[in-house]
């Protein structure tokens, strides 16, 4: 599903260039989930941005869903993100003026892949019954993140990229949200790459990787 080959990314800083990825290699097969651990500033979010096509590597190649990043242009990335990828952030990024129902249907509608039966299933699984007519600011943080997860999965993406999805939630809520996310990703057959600080949350996923000194190292996993 996802392969990184010798990916390099540097940032210019006032006191010289900083290399956050230095020939990083990584492979995530279809249907697998992986957690990406690392210290603050180690480049985890940068890696996620590169995979989502939000930023470009200085050298190296990424292959997503069988397509090399070297062959992808802006519009190809837009289509890929819309149809095959999903992003989940710590801050939920719900559209504040749309209802819960409209928010969770948004990406599926954009990609013309709205499956109402699956939508109802997700609403049920994520415990969003009775909340669909509300606006995001009328929900708790955990509820908002569950709406973001539903939105990310409704169009059955090939790859879900999550950046600290439970970073804003308390421990109990985090565990509940995480459990549902992993279950649903498995159910949809998607792959999942999740950036996290928490080894405990990383334990929910199939593989654990650490980003250190610009290199990715697999820690564990079957």
């Amino acid at each position: 599903m996802l392969r990184l080959n010798q990916v390099v990314k540097q940032f210019a800083q006032p006191d010289g260039d900083v290399t956050v990825l230095n020939g990083a290699n990584f492979h995530l097969p279809v249907g697998r989930s992986a957690a990406l651990l690392g210290e603050s500033g180690s480049g985890k979010s940068t890696l996620l941005h590169l995979i989502a096509g939000l930023d470009t590597p200085d050298s190296g190649d990424l292959t997503i869903d069988g397509r090399s990043s070297l062959t992808l242009h802006t519009n190809d990335w837009n289509r890929l993100r819309r149809d095959r990828l999903s992003l989940i952030f710590q801050q939920y990024h719900l559209v504040p003026t749309l209802t819960v129902l409209d928010n969770l249907q948004l990406q599926a509608r954009l990609s013309h892949r709205l499956d109402t039966a699956f939508r109802d299933h997700l609403i049920d699984r994520l415990g969003l019954d009775g909340l669909t007519r509300r606006l995001p600011h009328q929900l708790s943080g955990g509820q908002q993140q569950r709406v973001a997860i539903a939105r990310a999965l409704l169009h059955r993406p090939a790859l879900v990229l999550a950046d600290e999805p439970t970073g804003n939630l308390d421990e109990d809520t985090s565990e509940r949200v995480m459990g549902v996310l992993v279950d649903l990703v498995r159910e949809t057959g998607s792959s999942l790459l999740m950036v996290t600080h928490s080894a405990h949350m990383a334990g929910f996923l199939d593989e654990q990787w650490r980003l250190q000194h610009g290199q990715l190292r697999r820690l564990s996993g079957a």
């Binding site: 939000l54 837009n78 289509r79 992003l87 990024h93 559209v95 954009l110």
Partner: peptide, 15 residues
């Protein structure tokens, strides 16, 4: 930031 997120979900220019 909102527009960036819209774009990340696949909202096109005309949309």
């Amino acid at each position: 930031p909102s527009y960036a997120h819209w774009r990340s979900m696949g909202v096109s220019g005309p949309e």
